[in-house]
Design a protein around this nucleic acid. Sequence first.
DNA 1: CATGAATGAGAGTTCATTCAT
DNA 2: GATGAATGAACTCTCATTCAT
Lengths: 193, 193, 193, 193
Amino acid sequence: MGEKSEQKRRHIIEAARHIFEEKGYKQVTMKDIVEACNISRGGLYLHFGDTESIFCEILRLECKSMEIFRGEDIDEDATAADILLLFLKEQKRRILQKENTLDRAIYEFYFDNGELPKKDNLLKQQFETSVRILKKLIETGVENGEFTCDDCEGKARNIMYVIEGLKINARTIGITDEAVDREILYILSELGL
Amino acid sequence: MGEKSEQKRRHIIEAARHIFEEKGYKQVTMKDIVEACNISRGGLYLHFGDTESIFCEILRLECKSMEIFRGEDIDEDATAADILLLFLKEQKRRILQKENTLDRAIYEFYFDNGELPKKDNLLKQQFETSVRILKKLIETGVENGEFTCDDCEGKARNIMYVIEGLKINARTIGITDEAVDREILYILSELGL
Amino acid sequence: MGEKSEQKRRHIIEAARHIFEEKGYKQVTMKDIVEACNISRGGLYLHFGDTESIFCEILRLECKSMEIFRGEDIDEDATAADILLLFLKEQKRRILQKENTLDRAIYEFYFDNGELPKKDNLLKQQFETSVRILKKLIETGVENGEFTCDDCEGKARNIMYVIEGLKINARTIGITDEAVDREILYILSELGL
Amino acid sequence: MGEKSEQKRRHIIEAARHIFEEKGYKQVTMKDIVEACNISRGGLYLHFGDTESIFCEILRLECKSMEIFRGEDIDEDATAADILLLFLKEQKRRILQKENTLDRAIYEFYFDNGELPKKDNLLKQQFETSVRILKKLIETGVENGEFTCDDCEGKARNIMYVIEGLKINARTIGITDEAVDREILYILSELGL
DNA sequence: CATGAATGAGAGTTCATTCAT
DNA sequence: GATGAATGAACTCTCATTCAT
């Protein structure tokens, strides 16, 4: 029985995700989700009490499934520079992605829930993991003589803030493909590439 | 009469601004504004048809009055480094400012209205003006031998994206005073300071 | 303007009163009252936030307009016995009254709100006023040699508890006209009448 | 199977009773009872179609098990006065008892179902049995010269109405221990005690 | 028989918007 | 021009009741 319930739960989550991607966080109502699910009003409440709990569940799943960039694509004997390029390419994809992304909803959610416990903060985890990975990558590159950098951690953080800046700008003032490329090139140039 | 009407309009704008600062954009209702204005429901509708038009008006005024940082404080014979420090200090203040700021409301507004004509986009203007000013500043500093920088425009843009990244992070995952300082120091160190 | 609002308020109260008389307290919904008033959903909420506040208002008015029995009917040179008979007749009327009475609703209300401040308790006021009046009446009758009674206050309270008992029984197990008469006669016989 | 079914039925009744004691009659939902029983929704409906039928069953059982006061405590050679005191003490206990009593629920039930066939009316049976017992008691006391009373049945009814009055007042306007004692003393004094 | 997920009617509440005065 | 009462649509949430398994 729990099997079927779990299935329905996943179905709701899946449908709700699309709504959140479309409409952001605040403007999504239980009614929206009910309609998207082809489920009854009461049926939804059987599983979730409000949109917040649904969104949190979505975030949790997102968290689990998330990796900064898909390692699968990385060649065994890729250089640090290769991997960095791959990483930045993935970031670019995310920056420019307009559809099928929860980014706007996530921003809205954290505007409202800024005081949530830090460890539950998906964005923070995402950010810090990225910094750590980048730092390692840069250190490796420096050791290999691929990059030049005095303060690897500082540079890693700096890059991530640039990416954050690009991401939010893309969703507010808009940004062109070229503008993103320009920033990526600037980052690479500073690493001596 | 036009005089009096204009006065009331300003009064509405003023009161509405406080509400938007407090609650963001989406969650502000006409009712909120009516109550904050001590005006009648009908009276508000005489001037504005919805919250969007009120917010747009606020943005327009904001645009007019905006300067990246208050020039008044700048000493006549300040060096480029002095001015840059001042600029970054002002940015830091804005990044960390929680109350009395429209930032969150502005983000929310542009999430909803990303397709607005670019020239009306306050954030874009703000961003680009900042880049221009920064670029000039850096160029001056390089000429004076204060800074070292190969690509002044690239650096200016890079700095502004970092600041945007800090600003959005401050409003979502939270950020400490120290973290902002660290990024500022990193920026300065890259300029050879 | 306040004039018209006050009028509407009275209209709501009046319509609501009928509903409470019919259905008691708990089972009355805002919807019931909206429908009884020929008013819009929002219109009712303009005046009252919930059924409790409406009922409290009704109780307050009830309190004001209430007198134990209408003095108008009392002859100038009526004896204490005459007045007592009148009083008991009025009580009988109330005990047996089934329609157009808030009694059931009031009982239900105080079941739920037993912890309300005593001075706001209409039932208590009603009860204690009755005891006081009865006591005076009996004292007068004793002085005039109409009644015999050792403990006038005790007797007054005793009579009021009997009346309360009759009233609640009338609304639960039912009571006949004759049964009420029998108790009234018993009370009178104990006073030597 | 009938055995097991009967057992479950008893279990439901038992659990439901606690709910009715807590919440009265009207405000109890099938959901409340389902949750209190640790039974399935459908399982409850297999036995009872609504809260009314459950409450009626509870009343029926109550009726069976009811005795006005527990004879067990009565000494063989107790005087009528002794027994009367015991009776009144038990009544006092019931008047003041707030928890673990169905009284409020019963009142609410009969408010709604005043027209039920009289023989099913628990309250009426309870009341009339008490009157009969009291009458016998008083007659015995009069015969023994313990009490003075002209109209034993009238007195018995009178006492029971006072007790009903005290009981309902206790649940609406509230009553103190002392107030109950005062009435009991008044009753005794009228019997010449 | 028993289960508990699912349904849908209905109550509560809030606001944008209109309109008679 | 104002006013603020009134309207009604939209949402939230809770249960009684059913029904496939």
